[in-house]
Write a protein that binds this DNA or RNA. Structure first.
Lengths: 160, 160
DNA sequence: CGCTTGTCGTCAGCGTGCTGACGATCGCGC
DNA sequence: GCGCGATCGTCAGCACGCTGACGACAAGCG
C-alpha cells in the first residue's frame, strides 16, 4: 500500500476510475445513437419513453418515469417536447385529477417502427468491440450494478 | 424468430438495451458521487478537470478537454465555474494568443486533497455489487469499449 | 506581403438531469 | 365534514453535453 498522503493525480489515472469510464461510454453511446437515429430527431431517452408508452398506453407520468428511470421533472420536459411534435397526448385523469395519462398517437407508433432497426444497431455497436464471452458477462454485470444501485437518485426504476 | 412486423416493445425490454443500462449506471454513479462529495460542491466532471489540471499545470483548454473527454464548449463552462470559485486561473497564452492556460490555485489543490477519499469511495461503491472476478472483467470491458468508441462525439480522449 | 486554411475560445440554443419549492388533489383519521 | 400527510405535476434554477456559428489568431502558400 501507499501512504495515504500520496495523492499524485497521475498515479490515480482517470482511466481507472469506474465513474469516468461509465461517463465516457455513455457519451459514446449517445453519439452512436445520434449517428443512427439523428435524422429522425429522437434521442435515446425519448426513444425509451415512446417504447414504454407504446407498451402501456395511458400510463401516468409518474409511473412512466419509474419505468424509464427518468426524474419526474425531466420526464415532464421530454414528454412536453414529444407532445408538441404530435407523437403522443397527455390527458388529465378522470378518477384522480392529479394524474396525466400519456398515450401514443399514430405518429408516435410510426416513429417507433422507423426507429426499431437503427436503434437496435446503435445499441449493438455500443458493445460491438467485446467478443462474445466477455460481452455477455459485461451486460450481466451492468444489470447487476443497475439493480444494486437502483435506489439512488430521483429516477429509481420500478423494477417489476 | 418473429416477423419483423412484431415490434412488441415489451419483448425488447429496456433492461436489455446496453445504452439504457449505461445511462442508468451513470445516473447512479453521479448520485453516489453527490452523496460522498456533495458537501464540497464538486461534480464528477469538475473533479476530473481539477485532477488533470493538477497533474499538468498550464495546460490549455483544448488539451485539457481531450484529457478529460469533455467537449470544448462544455469545458469552457465548467472551467469558468471553477475559476469564479477561485479554484483555478485562466491565463492567455504569450506565444499563441489563442490559447488559455489553466492552472490550479491553492484552493484547488486543497479541494483535491479534501476530495481524494470521498471520491475514491464513490467510485468504489459504483462497482461494489460485483464480486471480484467479475468486477475486474467488467472494468476491463469498460476500458475496451471506451477505447474502441473513443473517436465518437466531440469529446474524444487523447489516449496517450 | 496577402490569402487561405485551420485552430482556439466563445456564444446562442437545445436536450437531459438534478434540487427545492409550490399549488392542486387524494386518502386517511378523526 | 375537516384537517393532515402524501402524491402528482409544474416551475425556477443550475450543471453537463451537444450543434452550429462566429471572431481572433497562427501557419502555410503563392
Amino acid at each position: 500500500m501507499n501512504d495515504t498522503q500520496v495523492a499524485a493525480p497521475s498515479a490515480w489515472d482517470l482511466a481507472v476510475r469506474p465513474g469516468f469510464l461509465i461517463r465516457r461510454l455513455h457519451q459514446i453511446h449517445v453519439a452512436m445513437f445520434a449517428e443512427e437515429c439523428g435524422h429522425l430527431g429522437i434521442t435515446p431517452v425519448q426513444f425509451s419513453i415512446l417504447s414504454v408508452a407504446a407498451a402501456q398506453p395511458g400510463l401516468e407520468q409518474a409511473r412512466l418515469g419509474h419505468e424509464v428511470g427518468v426524474d419526474r421533472t425531466t420526464l415532464a420536459n421530454v414528454v412536453a417536447r414529444l407532445e408538441s411534435r404530435g407523437l403522443l397526448t397527455r390527458a388529465q385523469g378522470a378518477a384522480d385529477r392529479r394524474l396525466k395519462h400519456v398515450t401514443l398517437r399514430p405518429d408516435g407508433h410510426a416513429m417507433l417502427d422507423a426507429m426499431a432497426e437503427p436503434a437496435r444497431r446503435a445499441h449493438a455497436r455500443t458493445v460491438e468491440a467485446l467478443v462474445e464471452p466477455e460481452r455477455a458477462v459485461f451486460l450481466r454485470a451492468l444489470s447487476v450494478l443497475v439493480a444494486a444501485g437502483n435506489q439512488y437518485g430521483r429516477a429509481a426504476l420500478r423494477l417489476a
